[in-house]
Design a protein around this nucleic acid. Structure first.
Lengths: 348, 348
DNA sequence: CTGAAAGCGCTTACAG
DNA sequence: CTGAAAGCGCTTACAG
């Protein structure tokens, strides 16, 4: 396993190691003829530069790390793709760290990034523990949070969608359709609570009573869990608020769970019940669901996070401001005007 | 950005660099008292060992690379998780390379792995181009193919599911239900063709005529594309083989596309038409689909690939044999006995 | 445009 | 159990 080194290439050609190194680094001071000789020799000897060795000598590794909340969850993939494209375009290598929702893994990855001397880090911690914040504070590597919002004291900038505003939009949409008994199924995470805030504020602004259902014991991260969560939330929802005419679910899969319950119980969507979600997952667009939802540019979100990080690495202007992405409503068939039948029933 | 080095730690304590290095490498020859002093100093100085520097001095990086066919595709995630768990347990770091179905990216990642001096590589190339094969032949790093089968001449071992056998099982299942007009929708990839072989052989064994539909122009990798592929295949399928009573789709999403077509055209599944897929994706289990499909242990598949690679790295016994995973049938509601009504129609 | 030399931060025999 | 020294494969001023 003793590979060809830069010295072998130099000896082979009778030039100095420095000269070959110049070739490797695209140094302008290099005779065209020499360049070609070296190129040929490298091909002939099948020389592969040793990255580790380069990195000890250089200041930068031109590598950045990106954590993935859960590799089993496709939701994050568009974000990741945006980051990846931007990093590639700028000559950086992207290293993924799979978290699988484990806080310990997050800590490990940050430590790994420090040992590897990554140039930057884009992270998606499930929670902002004291331990993580301390570690991050000690970390000399620029850090950006993606789709997670750090405590304000941390000085870590973030890039996220405006979930609050999105939820407001959804409530406006539903009230615009005439609904007044609108129930929200909460996902108890930072993002979920942000949506809930938007829902509550918006409802109150309309003079409506917020109605929130939550099953704190049930997992709702993975798609199938979330669908089950939505399905299981329905009995409680209907018993506590039997006059509900619209359900705004915190995520699309939860909304699909609601639809599943409806289907199993002869409740017609959207005639009897309007159902909406948030996130605009592919699955929500299937013709079986046609779910109205809240969307934002996931790819762009990732790209902006990457751009922000690059700015920080290059130390361009001091201000590292967080970015909040605007959301928009995706209108589909799962929400509809409060129909007269329902209206009359309520009056009885 | 001048970080603490091993020398700083040594100077701080008045010991030699070698001693600190021994601590870092858990060397047995180290006074317990010294060990504790060093531990304390490292914490106080917040010393983070430089991986790149360690790797130049050592022979091994204890890092292995795993390619991901498409980060937007959740299908592969269970495999990846199996690999990850095994590598973690064995003290290896796993680096993901996202391919996004690009052959160029595959080439780049292998080159990257060589430059980084990874200890091993698990790859999932979309195609085995001459260029890739040549590169791989030159690569000194042990390589295992996961869910892809290299040409036999390449000597690269692989770990894959027995798609051929799985397809046979499915045909047996359908014929067992009385179906004789069974159509297959082909996905034109290595895996898809393997399934088709099983279908064809199995049909012929039963004295039945194989009926294959394929839309070579249409993409069918990503979930939504595959669903559209299945949907679009139906008109041709029904016009060429109007007496079809069962459709065996190459993948679950294609099967869902078939179901979508059926739903839009008043064809009742499974009463009028049995539909089955392959892969056992989560989505196939939703109560809207309840699709009969072929499954295999995806997590285990990844784990076994990792174990095989580890063996190769450790040079345990010479033989590096490929592994073919057994599949099993997942019976759900989308396939049913050929009913009498259909039978009678056929006789007319 | 090119080379000799020092240095990057670590590990690893070799002495003691 | 510990230290001094050589070496890992590269880069980067410094000369010329």
């Amino acid at each position: 396993m003793c590979l060809t080194t830069i010295r072998d290439v130099a000896n082979y050609l009778g030039v100095s190691v420095s000269t070959v190194s110049r070739y490797l680094n695209n140094h302008p001071d290099l005779n065209e003829e020499t360049r070609q000789k070296i190129e040929k020799a490298i091909r002939e000897l099948d020389y592969v530069p040793n990255s580790a060795a380069r990195n000890v000598s250089r200041l930068s590794t031109r590598t950045i790390g990106l954590t993935i909340p859960d590799i089993q969850d496709s939701y994050f993939s568009d974000n990741a793709y945006g980051v990846e494209r931007c990093m590639l375009e700028n000559g950086y290598t992207l290293i993924y760290g799979s978290l699988n929702r484990s806080p310990k893994r997050m800590l490990d990855f940050v430590q790994y990034a420090r040992e590897m001397r990554f140039d930057g880090l884009i992270i998606t911690p499930e929670e902002w523990s004291e331990e993580l914040l301390t570690l991050l504070r000690r970390t000399e590597i620029p850090v950006v949070a993606l789709r997670r919002r750090p405590p304000e004291t941390s000085e870590i900038p973030y890039v996220d969608a405006d979930h609050y505003g999105g939820a407001c939009r959804m409530v406006e949409h539903l009230t615009g359709l005439g609904h007044r008994s609108i129930c929200h199924i909460l996902l108890n995470t930072d993002i979920g609570r942000e949506r809930m805030r938007g829902y509550v504020d918006s409802m109150e602004r309309c003079g409506l009573e917020p109605r929130i259902i939550s099953l704190p014991e049930m997992p709702a991260h993975k798609t199938m869990d979330a669908i089950a969560y939505g399905r299981e939330a329905m009995p409680e929802l209907l018993s506590r608020y039997p006059d509900t005419t619209a359900v705004f679910a915190s995520t699309d899969p939860i909304g699909i769970g609601v639809m599943e319950y409806a289907r199993n119980h002869g409740i017609c969507v959207p005639d009897d019940l309007s159902v909406s979600g948030s996130g605009d997952l592919e699955i929500a667009s299937l013709s079986w669901f046609e779910m109205t939802t809240i969307a934002f540019e996931r790819y762009e979100l990732g790209r902006r996070a990457a751009e922000l990080l690059l700015k920080m690495i290059r130390k361009e202007d001091g201000r590292k401001e967080s970015i909040l992405f605007d959301t928009h409503l995706v209108l589909r068939k799962s929400t509809a005007h409060l129909n007269d039948r329902k209206e009359k029933e309520k009056l009885l």
